[in-house]
C-alpha cells in the first residue's frame, strides 16, 4: 500500500480546521459558564440548515449564507442561555442538571429541525472546483475552510489580546468573582460569548454540511471530536484548542491509514477522537493548557 502522505497531512489540516471552528464556541462557553453545553451540537446543525436555506432555497450564495447563519444561530445561542441556563444557574442547579438541560435543549432543537426540514439528508448544490497541486487534490471548499480557520485564529487572537471585550472574556474565564469585583459586566461578557460561540458553531455546520451532507444529526456526528479538542486544548483555552484541533485532525487521518494497514474497519475513524478524549480525561484532564503557561 502506498500512502499519499502529503494528502494525509492536508486532510488533517482540513479536519483540524473544521474541529477548530466547531470547538472555539464550545471551549469559550464551557470556560465561562462552567458546564459543557451538549446542545452545541445542535447549534452546529441549526447553522447548517440556515446556511442551506439562505444559499440554496433563497439562492443568495455561500458567503451570505455564512453571515446570516452566524447571526441567527448566535441569537439562538443568546436566547438559550437567557431562557434556560441562566435561570437554572440562578436556582442553584448543579453541573449535572445543567448538562442534562443542555441535552434536553439539544432534543428540542434537533427534533424541531427534523420537523421543519424533515430527516432526509440535504446537499449543497454549489459545486466547488477541484484542482491538483503536485500530489494534492484540493477543492475550493477546503481552501475556504482552511482560510476561515486561519482568519478565525488571527481574529480571535486579536480580540482576546487587544480588545476590551476579549480581555474581559479572559478575566471572567480565569476568575469570575475577581472579574465581577473589578467592575466587569460579567453577564454581558457571558452573553457575548454565547453569541459568538453559537455563531461559530453555525460556520462549522455549513462547512461540514457542504463537505458531506446535512441532516438533523450533522452536529451530533462531530460533537465528541469537538469535545475532544476542547478538553485536550484545556477548557476555555483558545490557543490550546488550535493545537488540539490539529492534533486530533492528524490523529484521525493518520489513524485511518493505520486502520487500513491493520485490516480494521475505517468506521473506527471517529473512535480515534473518542479514545483521545477518554485518555486525556483520565491522564491529563487539564489538557494542554499547562504546557502553554509553562512555556
Amino acid at each position: 500500500m502506498t500512502v499519499n502522505w502529503a494528502q494525509v497531512l492536508f486532510n488533517s489540516t482540513i479536519t483540524g480546521s473544521l474541529y477548530l471552528i466547531g470547538a472555539v464556541g464550545l471551549t469559550l462557553t464551557y470556560g465561562l459558564s462552567r458546564f459543557p453545553n451538549f446542545a452545541h451540537a445542535e447549534f452546529i446543525t441549526l447553522g447548517a440548515y440556515i446556511g442551506y436555506s439562505v444559499a440554496e432555497q433563497a439562492g443568495l450564495g455561500f458567503p451570505l449564507a455564512l453571515v446570516v447563519s452566524f447571526l441567527v444561530t448566535g441569537i439562538v445561542g443568546i436566547l438559550c442561555y437567557r431562557g434556560i441556563f441562566q435561570p437554572l444557574a440562578k436556582r442553584g442547579a448543579t453541573i449535572i442538571h445543567l448538562m442534562v438541560a443542555s441535552i434536553a435543549l439539544g432534543f428540542i432543537l434537533r427534533y424541531s429541525i427534523g420537523a421543519t426540514w424533515t430527516w432526509k439528508p440535504l446537499y449543497f448544490t454549489t459545486t466547488w472546483s477541484a484542482f491538483n497541486i503536485g500530489p494534492l487534490r484540493i477543492t475550493g471548499l477546503w481552501v475556504w475552510l482552511i482560510l476561515t480557520a486561519i482568519a478565525l485564529a488571527i481574529l480571535m487572537h486579536f480580540i482576546l489580546v487587544k480588545t476590551k471585550i476579549g480581555k474581559a472574556i479572559r478575566a471572567t474565564s480565569s476568575n469570575p468573582e475577581l472579574a465581577l469585583a473589578s467592575g466587569i459586566n460579567v453577564d454581558r461578557v457571558i452573553l457575548i460569548t454565547w453569541f459568538i460561540g453559537a455563531g461559530l458553531a453555525a460556520f462549522a455546520g455549513i462547512f461540514r454540511g457542504a463537505d458531506t451532507q446535512i441532516w438533523p444529526l450533522t452536529g451530533w456526528d462531530i460533537i465528541l471530536p469537538i469535545f475532544a479538542v476542547t478538553i485536550l486544548g484545556g477548557i476555555g483555552n483558545f490557543y490550546g484548542a488550535i493545537v488540539a484541533a490539529f492534533i486530533i485532525g492528524l490523529a484521525e487521518n493518520v489513524g485511518v491509514v493505520g486502520l487500513i494497514a491493520l485490516g480494521l474497519s475505517t468506521s473506527y475513524r471517529i473512535g480515534i477522537a473518542f479514545l483521545i478524549l477518554i485518555i486525556t480525561l483520565i491522564v491529563r484532564p487539564e489538557g494542554l493548557a499547562m504546557l502553554f503557561r509553562r512555556a
Partner: peptide, 20 residues
C-alpha cells in the same frame, strides 16, 4: 408534525421545566 419529532420536543421541554 411527525409524532416522533413532537415526542422528543416535548420530552426536552418537559425535562427543562422539571429542572426549573
Amino acid at each position: 408534525i411527525n409524532p416522533t419529532d413532537l415526542q422528543y420536543i416535548l420530552f426536552g421541554a418537559l425535562i427543562i421545566l422539571v429542572l426549573l
